[in-house]
Simulated scan of single mutants.
Amino acid sequence: MKKLMALLASLTLVLAACGNDTETQTKQANEPQTLKVASLIPPMTDMLEIAKEQLAEDNIELEIVVLGDNVQPNSALAAKEVDANFFQHVPYMEEFNRSNDANLVPIEPIYFANYGVYAKNYDNMEDLPEGATIAIANDVSNIDRSLSLLAQHDVIELGEKEGTYYTQADITSNPKNFKFEEVDLLMLARAYDDVDAVLMTPAYAAPLGLTPKSDALLTEGVENDFAITLVAREDNQDDEAIQKLGEALTSDEVRAFLQENYDETAIPAF
C-alpha cells in the first residue's frame, strides 16, 4: 500500500510539473515579441508607426528607437542594442561595415529620398556665380552621391572611379570652379543660409519648407543605388520578425501613405 501511495504521489508531481510547463509555454507563446528598430526622422518614423500597427496583429511589438545622429543607428545595431535600423542607403551601410568591421546587411529597399540641389538666392543652376560654394555631406558615400548627381547634369565631369567612391580628386572638369564644402549630414540644412547651394535629401530640406519638385535646382530621381533601406545583421536577417517588418514597410498602406503625404519627396522602391 505504501508503495502504491508513493507511486501515486510521484505521478501527481509529474502531472503537476507537466501542467506547469504547458501553462508556461502557453503564456510565453501569448507574450508579444519585441522588435527594436533605430531610426531618425520622418517619414521614416511615420512609416514605422504604420508598420507597428500591422506587426501587432502578428503579436510583434515594434519599439521605435529615435536617435540623434546618423552614426548611432548603425553603432547600436552592430552592438546588438537594437534589432534593425531604418535610415540609410546601402552604400552608407557598406562604408560603415568597412570602417567598423561590422556585418550589417540590407533587408528591403523601401523608398528613394529624392536628392536635390537647393539654393536660397538662385532659381537655376546656371545662375550660380563663378567660384560659388556648394555644401555636400562629408561621409564618403554621400560625397560620391553628390558628385554623381552634379556629373549626371553636366555641372562637373568625373574621371574613372579609382576606388569604391568618387571623391573631389576625381573631378576632371569644373567649368565654373565651384568649391565644395564638406559638412556633417545633419548640418546641411543650417548651411543653406551660409553657402550658395546645398545638396541634401528631402528629410533635411523639409524643415526649410523646401521640396524636390518645387524648389530643387536639380534632382536625382530613382536610377541609383541610394534607396532608404531596412537594415539588420547577418545573424538576425532571417528572423521572422525582421522579415515581417520588411513586409509591413512595403505594404499597400505604406505606399498609400507616401503617395498621399510625401509624393514630392519619397518615391516607393517597391
Rank of each mutant, 00 (worst) to 15 (best):
T167C: 07
D194Y: 15
A227M: 11
L11R: 00
V71P: 00
D225E: 15
R98F: 10
I110N: 05
P129D: 11
E31L: 14
I156N: 05
Y115I: 09
V140D: 13
E157W: 02
I228P: 00
D252M: 10
L15C: 13
L13D: 00
N124S: 14
L67S: 06
A206G: 01
V183R: 11
D21T: 12
A197F: 10
D252I: 12
E130T: 11
A189T: 08
A76C: 00
D58A: 15
N59V: 06
T26R: 13
L230C: 05
L13N: 00
A29H: 06
A137Q: 05
E57K: 15
L245S: 04
E223M: 09
Y165R: 03
P202W: 11
Q243R: 12
A132Q: 10
Q243E: 09
D46F: 08
A132E: 08
E234T: 15
Y204I: 12
E160R: 10
E247H: 10
D194N: 15
A232M: 03
I50R: 01
D46L: 04
N236Q: 05
N261Q: 08
P32K: 03
E240H: 09
A113K: 02
T45W: 07
F180M: 08
K3N: 13
A151Y: 08
A113D: 14
Q88C: 13
R145G: 07
T34R: 04
G221E: 06
A6S: 12
A84W: 07
E57T: 14
E57I: 07
A197C: 09
N236P: 06
F96D: 02
N70S: 14
M1S: 15
E260L: 08
F87L: 13
F178Y: 15
E49Q: 14
L104P: 04
L15W: 08
D46R: 04
I107H: 05
T250I: 02
D123M: 10
